[in-house]
C-alpha cells in the first residue's frame, strides 16, 4: 500500500497555492492534514501527480475572536486546536463537545477543519457542526473570494460547492444568541469511527424558554449532513418539555438513508428518531441518562 509517484509542492501563501492549482489543473490535489487523503493515496484510489501541500501557509492556522461575538477559524486549524481552544469552549461549546468524537487523537493532531469540510464525508462531524451553527465558508480562487453558507456547500458524498480552482481559507461562525441551547450526540460502531447516525443542533430561545429558531442537523444517515426542517418547525414556537419533544417527533423529516455493511437504512432511520429525540431532551436540560 504505497502511493503512486507524485511530487509535492509547498506554497507559503494562499496566492501561491492558487497559482499552483491553476498551473497544474486536474493533475494536482490540495493536501492539508491529509488524514483522509493519505489512505486514498496509499490504496491508489487516487493518484494525483502533484500534491499542493498547504501546511506551510501559516496564516491559515488560527482561531480568531471577532468583536461582534463571532469567530473565524482558519482553514488550516487542526482539530486539536479547536479541541483545546478556550475561545471555542466559550463561544462554540457545540464544537468543543463534538471534537472528542472526531476520530482519534493522532488524527486530530494533524487533521484540519478546512480539509474535513472540503472532503465532505457524509458521516463526518464538522460539516454537521457548520450547518448547526449557521457557518459560512470563505473560499478563494484566482477569480477572487466568496462566502458560501454551509447550507449551500455540502451537496453529496464527497461533493461540495467548491470549484476546482478554489480553496477553503476560513470558516466564519456567527455569534450565538444569549441562552442558545445546543446538543451533540453520535453513535458509531466504535468510539472514533465515522457515525452511523449523529445529531448536532442549536436552538435560539426567548428569555422564558420559547424556541425562536432551531437548526437540527443529522449526519451519517444520508449522502451528506442535512437539516431536518420539519422537526425544526415542530419545535419552534414551543417551550420544550419531555412530553412536547415526544409530541414533535412524528414531524421528523423523511430522510433518504444509506445502507451499507455497517448499518441498514432501517437501522439508521431508527437511530435518527431515537437520537433526535435524545438530542432535543439533552439540549433543553431534561435528564437523558442513556448516552450513546
Amino acid at each position: 500500500m504505497k502511493p503512486a509517484p507524485l511530487d509535492i509542492l509547498a506554497p507559503t501563501s494562499v496566492a501561491h497555492a492558487l497559482s499552483l492549482l491553476v498551473e497544474h489543473g486536474d493533475q494536482a490535489r490540495l493536501i492539508a492534514g491529509g488524514q483522509s487523503l493519505m489512505p486514498i493515496l496509499a490504496m491508489r484510489l487516487a493518484a494525483p501527480a502533484i500534491l499542493i501541500d498547504l501546511n506551510g501557509i501559516g496564516a491559515l492556522r488560527g482561531i480568531h475572536a471577532q468583536a461582534d461575538g463571532s469567530v473565524i477559524i482558519g482553514a488550516l486549524s487542526r482539530h486539536r486546536d479547536l479541541e483545546r481552544s478556550d475561545l471555542v469552549a466559550e463561544r462554540l461549546p457545540l464544537i468543543a463537545a463534538a471534537m472528542p468524537w472526531v476520530a482519534h487523537v493522532q488524527i486530530r493532531n494533524r487533521g484540519t477543519i478546512g480539509g474535513s469540510l472540503a472532503h465532505a464525508d457524509p458521516a463526518a462531524e464538522l460539516p454537521a457542526l457548520c450547518l448547526a451553527l449557521g457557518a459560512t465558508l470563505e473560499l478563494h480562487s484566482p477569480r477572487g473570494a466568496r462566502h458560501v453558507a454551509a447550507a449551500d456547500f455540502f451537496q453529496g458524498v464527497f461533493a461540495t460547492e467548491r470549484a476546482d480552482d478554489e480553496m477553503i481559507t476560513a470558516v466564519h461562525l456567527p455569534a450565538a444568541s444569549p441562552g442558545q441551547r445546543w446538543a451533540f450526540i453520535e453513535l458509531a460502531r466504535r468510539h472514533g469511527d465515522f457515525a452511523l447516525c449523529g445529531i448536532a443542533l442549536t436552538a435560539d430561545c426567548s428569555p422564558i424558554g420559547q424556541v425562536l429558531g432551531a437548526r437540527i442537523v443529522v449526519f451519517g444517515v444520508s449522502d451528506c449532513a442535512q437539516r431536518l426542517p420539519q422537526l425544526e418547525a415542530a419545535i419552534v414556537g414551543t417551550t420544550p418539555t419531555p412530553t412536547s419533544i415526544d409530541q414533535a417527533m412524528p414531524a421528523l423529516d423523511q430522510v433518504e438513508a444509506r445502507s451499507d455493511h455497517h448499518a441498514s437504512s432501517e437501522y439508521r432511520l431508527e437511530l435518527l428518531a431515537t437520537l433526535a429525540r435524545r438530542a432535543l431532551r439533552q439540549a433543553f436540560g431534561f435528564d437523558e441518562r442513556i448516552a450513546p
Partner: peptide, 13 residues
C-alpha cells in the same frame, strides 16, 4: 511533541 501517524504523512512534509 504531539502523537501523529507516520503512515499518514509524507516525509517531505
Amino acid at each position: 511533541g504531539e502523537s501523529v501517524r507516520s503512515c499518514l504523512l509524507f516525509a517531505a512534509q
